[in-house]
Amino acid sequence: MTPSATDADCRRVLRIPLSAEDHRIARLAAAAIGLSLIDAAIPTPLPGVKPGLANIVTLIVLARCGWRAAAWVTGLRVLAGSLLLGQFLAPGFFLSATGALFSLLALGAARHLPGRWFGPVSLSVIAAFAHMAGQILLARAWLIPHDGVFLLAPLFACAALFFGTVNGLVAARFLSTPLAAEAAAAEPAHV
């Protein structure tokens, strides 16, 4: 065992090459995780009703980097957020994972809507409704196997409409201030 041998051992540590894309996704996921922690800290009158602030990040990533990146950011957010909140593999984790899955699928379909007519607010509201539908279906199928769950559906729907609109407006606001590079290149004539 010479010092040089241990050095060689150390150098054999597997090094995963990280692309700029990875860094960007990690940064955005970190922002989403922060927002979901804030989300969890906000008291709500009804369990299951949350503002879903992290979806603002999802919407921005979807618009700027595409659906794949949005799926990555959302998946990481659900996973790491649940770990930080101590909910990993608890019912709440599966609920948010199902909601995230449904809303990502809905976003994947809805982003093909003509962008001239449908902006981030539409995407946000559609995603919020899909999120709610996924959660309520999972709750009905697994957690509370009784049709009584659907009694809450109208309240959840109202919450989805309201918070979906608010989050969509915030995302639209962020997206309406173009990045410095984009502003120069993409929209020179737009006032």
Binding site: L113, P114, R116, W117, F118, G119, P120, V121, S122, V125, G168, L169, A172, R173, S176
Partner: peptide, 8 residues
């Protein structure tokens, strides 16, 4: 920030 389809 709301486009016509958003109102829809």
């Amino acid at each position: 920030l709301l486009r016509p389809g958003d109102w829809l």
